[in-house]
Design a protein around this nucleic acid. Structure first.
Length: 108
DNA sequence: GATATGACGTCAT
DNA sequence: CATGACGCCATAT
């Protein structure tokens, strides 16, 4: 049911705290839909009133073009997010919780 | 139902 | 690091 999916994706996006960032893929996983990164991007484009600037592509790279990309970067820097070249320093600003954590297989 | 599109991701080269 | 191919999801026509 796409409805619930949409709701959970929105919730995941709204859950990103100020000064932190996430990625399309992580948001999708947090919503319980790994692989639906594209769906997340679509949602962000459609819906309004969301912290869209806190969502980046894998590796902390801005996937927008032109002015939008500039604006996103400025907004993030205004929140204290540090950039390393054209990417965000995910090591310090990546918002992750149990759900977004990548399942590492322990021992063998 | 087939095809195209989008603020994607991962892997191979 | 740059490209290309393929996979993935939901919509739009």
């Amino acid at each position: 049911m796409p409805e619930a999916m949409q709701t959970r994706i929105l919730a995941a996006i709204r859950g990103i705290p100020r000064g932190k960032v996430s990625t399309y893929g992580d948001v999708a996983r947090a919503a319980g839909h790994p692989g639906a990164a594209r769906r997340v991007a679509w949602t962000l484009h459609r819906s309004v009133g969301l912290p869209w600037h806190r969502v980046l592509g894998a590796g902390g790279e801005i996937k927008l073009r032109g002015d939008s990309a500039i604006e996103q970067r400025l907004r993030l820097e205004a929140e204290g997010v540090a950039f390393r070249g054209r990417r965000v320093d995910m090591k310090d600003h990546r918002f992750q919780n149990r759900a977004t954590r990548k399942p590492r297989r322990r021992k063998k």
